[in-house]
Simulated scan of single mutants.
Amino acid sequence: MGIKGIFFGAIGTLAETSEVQREAFNLAFRQSGLDWVWDQDSYFRMLEEPGGARRIADYARQTGDVVDAPAIYSRKVANFRALVLDRGIAPRAGVVAVIEAARQQGVRVGWATSTYPETVDLMLAGLAGAIPRAAFDYIGDGTRVKARKPAPDIYRDALAQTGVAAAEALAIEDTPESAEAALAAGLRCVAFPGEAARERTFPAGCPLRDTLSADLLKTPLAA
């Protein structure tokens, strides 16, 4: 059975943004009069739990500081946006090759992210020239589903909107939690961890890829 649809998952499957995100957090702390500095190892551990404002609140409880976590997080979001628009972001290795090969072969291409619509728009702006919006047959966001990953809702929506059966689809995910969402929706999943998840354990049945290439479209699916 050949692949009829290939679905990139979280934003980190398209571009590595963890270091820019960390820079944006640390800048927000300075803007808020805090002497906090999140180093890379600490930040990567924090990423195992979702929610930027919650990370700030949890960290404040550890340090004993009284902070307005939502306000600090809003500064972080603004900083991240400014950094991405100023510098742009580069696609991860092999992403463009997979998208181009899929389009040439008539394979549906989706981006099954459950992040905020504003983040989707920002990522596409940062990737402009490398990956246009028109490259995708489907682009998800958190407003399309009741439950975000690791719930399978966004993948079910992607399949319904593209007309691809789960048994004919392949997902690419960068964290174990997001991979669980794809598997729960019945898709085969390839693990493509970024810097933050490179040492983490993915669910069984998710082969690990350090880079992507067009041969991914030859991945065997269940008969």
Rank of each mutant, 00 (worst) to 15 (best):
T143M: 10
P152F: 11
D153H: 02
G52M: 04
E177Q: 11
D65R: 15
W111R: 03
E48C: 12
S18H: 11
I11W: 07
N79A: 03
G88E: 11
R200V: 14
V20W: 10
I131W: 13
A204D: 14
G110Q: 01
G140D: 02
E168L: 09
D121M: 07
L221M: 05
A204W: 04
G33H: 01
N26H: 00
P207Y: 12
T17P: 02
A167T: 15
D35Y: 01
A167D: 15
C206V: 05
D157R: 06
V109H: 01
I99T: 02
G126R: 10
T63C: 10
L187R: 08
E199W: 06
I154D: 08
K4R: 14
R103L: 08
T201W: 00
L14P: 02
A130I: 01
L212P: 07
E180P: 00
G9E: 01
F136P: 08
D68L: 08
S42T: 15
A169H: 12
R45I: 11
P207I: 13
G33M: 06
T211Y: 05
R108H: 06
E49R: 15
A102F: 06
R108M: 08
A169G: 07
T13H: 05
G205M: 04
V77W: 10
E168M: 12
A90V: 14
P150K: 03
R30T: 14
S114K: 00
D58Q: 13
S74T: 14
I131C: 05
L221S: 04
P220E: 09
L208Y: 06
Q21N: 09
G186A: 03
V84K: 10
K4G: 14
I139V: 00
R209D: 03
Y73N: 14
T17W: 09
P193T: 08
Y59N: 12
I56M: 07
R198P: 06
D153E: 08
A166N: 06
V164A: 05
A196F: 11
G88Q: 07
L216H: 07
T63G: 00
L34F: 01
L124D: 00
R81D: 13
A184P: 12
A28P: 01
V96T: 08
S74A: 15
A112N: 06
I139Q: 00
P207K: 11
G94M: 06
S114T: 09
T219W: 05
W111Q: 02
A151L: 02
R30W: 01
A204V: 15
T113K: 07
R54C: 01
L187D: 05
G9L: 02
R188T: 14
V37P: 00
D210M: 13
S213K: 00
E199V: 10
V67Y: 12
L217N: 09
S213A: 04
T119W: 13
G5V: 09
R22W: 03
S178I: 01
A53D: 10
A166S: 14
P150H: 05
V95I: 02
L187S: 11
G110Y: 08
A169S: 05
V107K: 00
C189A: 13
K76M: 12
A90Y: 10
I139F: 00
A214G: 08
V95H: 02
L83F: 09
L127Q: 09
D210N: 15
W111E: 10
E49M: 13
L183C: 06
D157E: 12
G140E: 01
V109L: 11
A171T: 10
